Amino acid sequence: MTRNLIPGVLAMAAIVVASNILVQYLFGQWLTWGAFTYPFAFLVTDLMNRIYGAAAARRVVLVGFGVGLLCSFIGTQIMGEFGPLVTLRIAIASGTAFLTAQLLDVAIFDRLRNGAWWRAPMVSTLVGATVDTTIFFTIAFSTWLIWLEPGNDISWASEALPLLGLGPAAPLWVSLAVADWGVKLSLSVIALIPFRIIVQRLSPKST
Results as ranks from 00 to 15, higher is better:
residue 131 V to K: 01
residue 147 W to R: 08
residue 107 A to K: 05
residue 18 A to G: 03
residue 147 W to A: 04
residue 78 I to N: 10
residue 88 L to D: 00
residue 96 T to R: 07
residue 199 V to W: 04
residue 143 T to D: 15
residue 126 L to E: 01
residue 145 L to P: 08
residue 66 G to V: 02
residue 114 N to I: 07
residue 119 R to M: 15
residue 57 A to R: 02
residue 161 L to G: 01
residue 47 L to V: 03
residue 29 Q to C: 06
residue 79 M to V: 15
residue 27 F to P: 15
residue 196 R to G: 00
residue 49 N to S: 13
residue 162 P to N: 05
residue 50 R to W: 01
residue 28 G to R: 03
residue 185 L to P: 07
residue 98 F to I: 08
residue 65 F to Q: 13
residue 138 T to N: 13
residue 201 R to L: 11
residue 60 V to A: 00
residue 61 V to C: 09
residue 138 T to K: 04
residue 17 V to L: 12
residue 56 A to Y: 03
residue 141 F to E: 10
residue 1 M to A: 03
residue 27 F to Q: 14
residue 204 P to E: 15
residue 7 P to G: 11
residue 136 F to I: 05
residue 92 I to N: 11
residue 164 L to A: 11
residue 127 V to R: 12
residue 30 W to K: 03
residue 94 S to N: 12
residue 173 W to M: 00
residue 78 I to E: 06
residue 201 R to G: 11
residue 198 I to T: 07
residue 203 S to Q: 12
residue 161 L to K: 02
residue 165 G to W: 07
residue 205 K to M: 09
residue 74 I to F: 05
residue 8 G to Q: 02
residue 60 V to G: 06
residue 44 V to Y: 00
residue 115 G to M: 09
residue 164 L to N: 09
residue 72 S to P: 00
residue 159 E to V: 15
residue 204 P to F: 10
residue 39 P to L: 10
residue 40 F to M: 01
residue 8 G to T: 06
residue 125 T to G: 06
residue 90 I to Y: 07
residue 53 G to S: 06
residue 23 V to T: 15
residue 58 R to L: 12
residue 157 A to M: 14
residue 73 F to T: 07
residue 133 T to V: 12
residue 179 A to I: 07
residue 120 A to D: 06
residue 121 P to E: 01
residue 162 P to M: 08
residue 105 D to R: 01
residue 76 T to G: 13
residue 122 M to G: 05
residue 106 V to Y: 02
residue 122 M to K: 06
residue 13 A to T: 13
residue 56 A to V: 05
residue 131 V to C: 03
residue 145 L to C: 01
residue 79 M to C: 10
residue 74 I to T: 03
residue 207 T to Q: 15
residue 68 G to M: 11
residue 182 G to K: 02
residue 187 L to Q: 02
residue 23 V to R: 03
residue 152 N to M: 12
residue 24 Q to R: 12
residue 126 L to V: 07
residue 125 T to S: 14
residue 69 L to T: 12
residue 163 L to N: 08
residue 178 V to R: 04
residue 154 I to H: 11
residue 196 R to D: 01
residue 26 L to M: 13
residue 67 V to I: 14
residue 129 A to V: 08
residue 93 A to P: 09
residue 5 L to G: 10
residue 159 E to M: 07
residue 200 Q to L: 14
residue 129 A to T: 14
residue 8 G to D: 05
residue 82 F to P: 03
residue 120 A to V: 04
residue 8 G to R: 10
residue 105 D to T: 12
residue 149 E to S: 08
residue 52 Y to I: 14
residue 197 I to K: 13
residue 149 E to T: 15
residue 17 V to D: 13
residue 184 K to M: 09
residue 131 V to L: 01
residue 32 T to A: 13
residue 185 L to E: 04
residue 21 I to F: 11
residue 160 A to N: 02
residue 56 A to T: 01
residue 51 I to R: 02
residue 132 D to L: 08
residue 28 G to Q: 04
residue 89 R to F: 09
residue 113 R to K: 15
residue 101 A to Q: 04
residue 134 T to A: 14
residue 101 A to N: 03
residue 122 M to Q: 13
residue 76 T to V: 09
residue 97 A to Q: 09
residue 163 L to W: 08
residue 207 T to E: 15
residue 170 A to T: 12
residue 193 I to K: 11
residue 171 P to M: 02
residue 182 G to C: 14
residue 104 L to K: 03
residue 191 A to V: 08
residue 183 V to C: 04
residue 77 Q to D: 02
residue 70 L to R: 00
residue 175 S to P: 08
residue 119 R to D: 11
